[in-house]
Design a protein around this nucleic acid. Structure first.
Lengths: 222, 222
DNA sequence: CCGAAGCCCGTTGCATACAATGCATACAAC
DNA sequence: GTTGTATGCATTGTATGCAACGGGCTTCGG
């Protein structure tokens, strides 16, 4: 059955990615319970690769075991702030490393130009209220910094955290008055990296992330 | 078959843990190729839960996809140093957070006593050349600090990194003259946390981890 | 003797069949 | 009316069968 007449062999990874994309897009919202058969039919495969994807995504922190079966992870405000703290530490690290590499002359000028362009495009998309695109570009800006740090371990850890944050903050997006501040902080980080100043870059990154964390939960009292 | 006459139902997680333990114990050394049937027979289950464990452990960073099938992750010296840098950033964070909590009076005295006892036992085991026990206690000391930070996200990220390091440094253990230095650095960290001094605690943790990284590859030239 | 091509076997990947568990609902007793 | 229990259903967990891919060995040709 399943119309799949054995084109097979190259699914096990793609199921993982497809499902991850579905979750990040909000197609499966936080807290949603995922059934194996349902997902299997949606993706047109059998339950086996779906189960494997569930395990992988659970280890990735996007799904959580919920008694029988799994649900999309749903972080409380407190848990989210824990994620942000770790993210701040890691982005401070990548910013420092990127600045060090710049100071050592190991960054091509084109890489910094790209980063600046990314900051521009992020700002523009935000001003024009293209939310989805703005989120995508913002994440890409941060990812680019991590790539400049040339530390795959840090990059991978950050991808995990960004994923979790993206899932859990989908609905609480963007106090509008933060637009200018965010852009300023991006510029500040960019400038510190360009100047090859690790301490300044790390501090800028940490501050930016922690500000974002504070902004992510305005209606919380505790 | 499989003699398992359906005691079943509670395996899927335990396979993951059993296999992880086997890898951490060095039963499957770095670079070793893992066959599904072989592991399945070893653990007395069918291939299905083993496959799921493979996926989960791959996401955990303990296994790596190798064309067809998986192998135990084998980090180069350079990759290992990337892991150590991230670990240093994260342990600096947890040390800071633990010290902050101490300053805020949120740590019970017993918790610090426990930590001190752990440092003692680690030192003693090292001096007496009980390698396995020393490694275990050392890890527990670091884990305890992370637990005092009360940030589950940081703790989880660190567990991943510790796992990877433990697998990849099994054979290059312990320059003997570092014993005293390690103990000193543990004491220094403990003192800074006890004093409720986040900056000092963070700095001590970072230095300790980076020193350990430097010691982990003495015969490397590049 | 060496190299290349072809075949065979082992192993993985996916699908499906089957067993068991937990939940919900309905019924009965108090 | 409420509570306890039993039964049926839906869904997960596990095992196994089947097809394809790949590596290794053999063999044939140069």
């Amino acid at each position: 059955m399943h119309t799949t007449l054995y084109a097979a062999g190259v699914q096990t990874g793609s199921i993982h990615h497809s499902l991850r994309a579905l979750i990040l897009d909000g197609r499966y919202p936080p807290g949603a319970r995922l059934g194996e058969v349902e997902v299997a039919e949606t993706l047109g495969v059998s339950r086996t690769p779906v189960r494997e994807a569930f395990r992988a995504l659970t280890a990735d922190g996007l799904l959580a075991a919920a008694g029988r079966g799994v649900r999309v992870v749903e972080l409380s405000a407190e848990e989210l702030s824990h994620v942000y703290r770790v993210r701040a530490a890691l982005e401070a690290l990548t910013a420092e490393l990127a600045a060090e590499r710049q100071r050592a002359g190991r960054l091509a000028p084109a890489e910094l130009t790209d980063l600046a362009a990314l900051a521009d495009r992020t700002h523009r998309a935000t001003v024009e209220r293209e939310l989805t695109e703005a989120v995508r570009l913002n994440r890409q800006f941060h990812r680019r910094v991590a790539e400049l740090a040339a530390n795959p371990v840090a990059l991978h850890s950050l991808e995990r955290l960004w994923d979790q944050i993206q899932v859990s903050t989908r609905r609480s997006l963007h106090a509008p008055d933060r637009t200018a501040l965010v852009d300023d902080q991006h510029r500040e980080l960019l400038a510190a990296v360009t100047a090859g100043d690790p301490a300044a870059a790390g501090a800028a990154a940490r501050r930016h992330v922690l500000d974002t964390c504070a902004a992510a939960r305005p209606p919380e009292k505790e």
